[in-house]
Design a protein around this nucleic acid. Sequence first.
DNA 1: GATTCTATATGCATTAGACATATAGATGAT
DNA 2: ATCATCTATATGTCTAATGCATATAGAATC
Lengths: 133, 133
Amino acid sequence: MCGRMHDNHCHDRPLQRCGCSGSRIERFIEPCLLLLLLEKPAHGYDLMERLKEFGFDGENQDPGVVYRNLRRLEDEGMVRSEWDTSGPGPARRLYEVTSEGKELLRAWVEVIRQNIATLKSFSERYDALGDLQ
Amino acid sequence: MCGRMHDNHCHDRPLQRCGCSGSRIERFIEPCLLLLLLEKPAHGYDLMERLKEFGFDGENQDPGVVYRNLRRLEDEGMVRSEWDTSGPGPARRLYEVTSEGKELLRAWVEVIRQNIATLKSFSERYDALGDLQ
DNA sequence: GATTCTATATGCATTAGACATATAGATGAT
DNA sequence: ATCATCTATATGTCTAATGCATATAGAATC
């Protein structure tokens, strides 16, 4: 999502206002990781690529954010991992979702649907302003 | 929105995970304030009440967050205010939206619509999991 | 005049995340 | 072989947003 505001949105506001902070859904990366891993177990480097499909800022996806989230999810028992030394290149940690993680994703989906409703209602309320816009 | 996860979502996760941090849209209060003020100029205490209409946690709406956001918006020229000593009770600051603020709201609405699309696509992708859910 | 209500404001701590950097094994080039 | 590059994971630091607690002060009420 990142949802970094485009330059033409920034007007004269201080630059830091444009740094992705205008639209991010907090911790949205968490359900994205869980969904991707449910679709197909994977390692972090791979997930970094696949996250782009959810609208996260493509060019510079931050590895720090991805790995720290995976670690936290593992600490909380939402995913589990094991080292995978097969295949070329350095060893990678293969993650899969636990049943607790599935439940968490289910909860997230409820919240996300609630958010869709809230945002739609906001959008309609804006349209209702008519001339005031 | 707050979107505080209900208790039944929390399972065994540490409590702090339930503190509204699972679903908040970052800075969503900003476009809400702008929209409310466009509908009708108002003071902070009044806005605190009206914010509930957007799904912000009803019971304990935080005055600190509201007033600080209003101040920041004013520093940035998105709203302007003047003291209003008419009416009963202590003096209140009456806010109204500037033309810059209108533009910012327009930008926010674009971002919000993009977010709706992203969340919908996530929700559909989750449904497509089928048995894996 | 003491308490309560309305209204605004500040202090402190936590958290997510942006950005930079570190580590290390594997692969490829000269 | 050794040096650079690529793949993959990991940590350090700083800032912005905000939850929670508390402060201030004038008005209204008892």
